Simulated scan of single mutants.
Amino acid sequence: MASTVHFLDGARRIVAKELRIAYRLNLHNVWVAALPPLLLAAASWVVDPPDRPGPTLMTVVIWSYLFVYIFDAANQAAGIEEDRINKPQRPAPMGLVDAHGLRTRCAVGSVLFVSIGFAASVWTGTISAVWVATIVFVHMFMPASMYFAWKPLSNLSGAVTQLIGGWAIVGPLNTTAVTWALTLSIMVVIAMPIEDVRDVDGDIAAGRRSYPMMFGASSVSRTFAVLMAVWPFVGWALILRTVELTTCEFCTLAIVFTLSYSAGLSALNTRSMPSQKRAYILYSLVHVALTALPLATVIT
């Protein structure tokens, strides 16, 4: 009896520790990184409803979360020095886990992620494996001084994996779905340097070279503001492709416009770091709203 109680108490402590680490690991990324594949999966669901909705929904949710878990574990294992300055609330700076522990969790999560992907569909499994290989290569072999080059490529790979994989879990891929996924992925990556404006001090400590360091934070912020002025029209032209909008399409596009212009205006306040941080948060919401456009398109 005593041994059983001891075992259960130990298991409870392990679970509590892992939940605390996962919470700190994904605190600021889980909603923006997990929602886009769920939205594409929802669009796929509307186009071709699955035969087993319950298991399919559970698969999409777990697979989407594992993506976030792996990405954050790999990224934070390689960026502890930066996080000590920019994000001290993360698990490594708090002393909850070290780089080896994060890499171990990344490896375990990767096995589960790829396995679930292949169990769902060949497309999802294949693209999951390619993305995991990309993450491993980037963090093991790419120098910090080339951060400005490999970060966009890594993020592009991740965005494509999320969107195509999320769709393919629910139903078969088609040309339209792939076009949507590529369009949305390229859009999110092009404007992503706004994220690095807030992280310059930590990136310097980590030996990274980012676009704000190379061209100036103000230039990056102003370029971002221009992109935000254009992005709603790009989404309209490349995804909705019509001036005769349904109510759902109109409302979703209105949200994209509101968030985009709010993000752009916030970024124009180049002397305020809180405004730059707000611009990135709003931009994360812009990406989520843009990813909702395909769903709005297929809803009749």
Rank of each mutant, 00 (worst) to 15 (best):
P193L: 06
G171A: 15
L238Y: 03
R198V: 09
S221T: 08
A217H: 09
D196K: 00
A237K: 04
L156G: 04
E195N: 13
V200K: 04
V197W: 01
A177W: 13
D203G: 07
I186H: 10
S185K: 02
T223R: 08
G165M: 07
G202K: 10
I186V: 15
A206Q: 13
W180H: 15
L227W: 13
R209M: 12
A159S: 14
S218C: 08
R222P: 09
S219K: 14
M192C: 03
F215T: 12
I169W: 08
Q162P: 05
A168R: 10
L163G: 11
G235A: 00
T223N: 09
V188M: 14
W236L: 11
F215N: 08
A237Q: 04
M192D: 14
A205S: 01
G216T: 12
V230T: 03
A229W: 03
A168F: 10
T161G: 05
R209I: 12
A191M: 11
M213N: 14
L227F: 12
N155P: 06
I186Y: 10
A229E: 00
M228C: 09
M214V: 14
D203Q: 06
A159D: 05
V220C: 08
P193D: 00
P212Q: 07
A191F: 10
D203S: 07
F233T: 07
V220P: 11
T176C: 08
L153D: 00
M214G: 11
V189L: 11
